[in-house]
Design a binder for these strands. Structure first.
Lengths: 354, 354
DNA sequence: ATCCGTCAAGCAACCGATTTCTTGACGCGT
DNA sequence: ACGCGTCAAGAAATCGGTTGCTTGACGGAT
């Protein structure tokens, strides 16, 4: 890891910095060659102390800032990390982007944010852009695991880390959570609280995460010898609202509810309120995802949280390991989930679990 | 270490190099000069039809993609737009970023997202990076209007659009809302509903938006001959929660509440719920900002919405006008606010909406 | 004393597209 | 016929760092 001088230039003294000072200008000022200036600036250890000082003071005095565009061309890569998500408005992703941005910044990198709105075409266009831009690496939550451009990306030597959703290309790294376990934990918690009629508000069953979360619920119910009861919410608030409204009209009304993501939870809460159903007295709820508003709604929401910050840290580490050539083999990290018990699930069997 | 296969075959050999098809390769394939290829690709009209076709088919056949890094160096600028906000997790900004991203994408640009966490140092570092990267333009919501680097940015010919918060440099464009009016509208709505004891949960009074929103409330109250009643929430959920809890203990308990942003609204709702205060029966609430969860809490929240999408569109237009040299003089756009009446403010005047 | 290895520093060839400046061809007016 | 303007296309000079290769100096080994 080479020290980058651009980190240390933060003097605001002469805010009137004339642009267009090149490395050779610095070189002639310091009476050395451009090559030596370059080496000093990139922390090459083979430069004598005297020269280093001469160069640094010339840099300082001229207020020189290396032209990154030239560097990029020569190196055939940038210091930018591409982050591709389906919807940055979803708290899950905005937290992820926030964390990734912070980590990248700490290492002197920038973040190119790409929003796919869940459309494969846009995803592909962005991935192609990333190849064109020679980004340093990509963290992505794909809408299309089999997307061939992902393979092209890896072929061109750009490391890829799948976030949340795995990709087909086996060379990519991945940071995911055990979605099956997430909904199983939620369901089991309600079971332990004595509920026997627990329904599941499912996401999109075309998406991996959607399927898995349903499976986890299914598993838990069947293990308890109970019949699953699923309504479709398509990972969207409105749909979930309608589906739950419908559900509440059915005769044996469920006493427990597991909701597969934060958007649908909003719709669900609204439906419950409209129907005059009290939480947790009439019905216990556990949601997957732990959005910022979860502790603040009434009653505070019990959630199965994904450790987004941790996942982001893992993703960045996997990425930079590849970039720095510290690793060749793909890795797959599965992060544990955390059940955050608040009031919405009722007070079944104590709040022992963390 | 990885891609050393790029050993150039500059010895005339000219065999098919799989990696890196350059413009001159296309040129020789099309039996024209690189200059002509470049012109065709950039839509220069002075190229004959026959040549255009030859070039395009060579491009097609070789699957040529221009090296953007080279283009960037030559042009001394990129196609990237910098977007700098204080907190991308705040729905207000994630909506803005989302909208900006979408607009940029439509015009073939990328978005570099910068999160300052409200720290001037990080903001400055990012602005310097943007200068180094020669971004096409910057949309920013500054934490420090007087930041000298903003001036440096403009000096280096990079257009700047202030978003939400104005900047000191008069050459920057701006897209803002009338914050004073926002809180005045909210307050007046409660006044019209017959409330006389309305309190205000204020944001940070060191920030422009914080001050203005307080002023608007103040104005409305005094105009009605009523005494203002302000508690400080510092734009944060927890602080607002504590402040409101305190407020509710006071003897003439207010019957109306105006909250200065979405985060504090969460804290406020929680405090109300804990105190067993019913909304809107015991107390009417109007919030500034219209976060996605507003229609879903109980009761649905009346909000003064900022037209974020519209603001983003304006910002992008202002920016691209500058980039394309269509305008020289700074412009300042003030967007109107929208009162979205839902249940939380009670049924004073006018009809309720979902 | 000669040679070789080592190390520091410089030279110059890149990276690949853009763009200015030329050149050459053609047409038309005098 | 000559000359000038117009237009299309090419040659070549950038843009500004980086880095492989070379040179020169110095010290130790032979």
């Amino acid at each position: 890891m080479l020290a980058d001088v651009s980190e240390t230039i933060s003097r605001d003294g002469g805010s009137k910095v004339p642009r267009g000072i090149t490395i050779s200008r610095v070189a002639s000022e310091a009476r050395v060659s451009p090559a030596t200036v370059s080496r000093v600036l990139n922390g090459d250890p083979r430069v004598g102390e005297e020269y280093r000082i001469r160069v640094m003071s010339a840099v300082e005095m001229l207020g020189y800032r290396p032209n990154r565009l030239a560097r990029n061309l020569r190196r055939q890569r940038t210091a930018t990390i591409g982050v591709l998500v389906s919807d940055i408005k979803n708290p899950h992703f905005s937290e992820a982007v926030h964390a990734l941005e912070r980590l990248a910044f700490g290492r002197g990198h920038q973040v190119l944010v790409c929003n796919t709105d869940e459309t494969p075409e846009k995803e592909r266009a962005y991935l192609e852009t990333m190849i064109d831009e020679r980004v340093l690496g990509v963290v992505l939550s794909t809408s299309n695991p089999g997307e061939p451009t992902i393979t092209t990306l890896i072929d061109s030597g750009i490391p890829v880390v799948a976030f949340d959703r795995e990709v087909a290309d086996p060379r990519a790294d991945a940071v995911i959570v055990d979605n099956i376990r997430a909904s199983r934990m939620a369901t089991e918690r309600l079971l332990a609280a004595g509920h026997t009629d627990i329904a599941f508000v499912s996401g999109r069953t075309e998406v991996e995460t959607g399927i898995e979360r349903m499976q986890g619920y299914d598993l838990a119910m069947r293990a308890a010898g109970l019949e699953p009861r699923v309504v479709l919410g398509g990972f969207r608030a409105e749909l979930a609202h309608d589906a739950v409204t419908e559900l509440l009209r059915e005769d044996p009304r469920p006493t427990g509810l597991v909701v597969a993501n934060n958007l649908m939870t909003l719709g669900t809460l609204r439906a419950l309120h409209e129907a005059g159903v009290r939480v947790p007295d009439d019905i216990g709820i556990i949601a997957i995802d732990d959005p910022p508003w979860a502790p603040f709604v009434s009653p505070p929401l019990t959630c199965v949280a994904q450790p987004v910050d941790r996942m982001a840290a893992d993703a960045m580490e996997l990425l930079l390991d590849r970039v720095d050539g510290r690793r060749d083999q793909p890795r797959r990290i599965v992060q544990p989930l955390e059940l955050r018990v608040r009031a919405s699930c009722g007070t079944g069997t104590g709040a022992a679990k963390t």
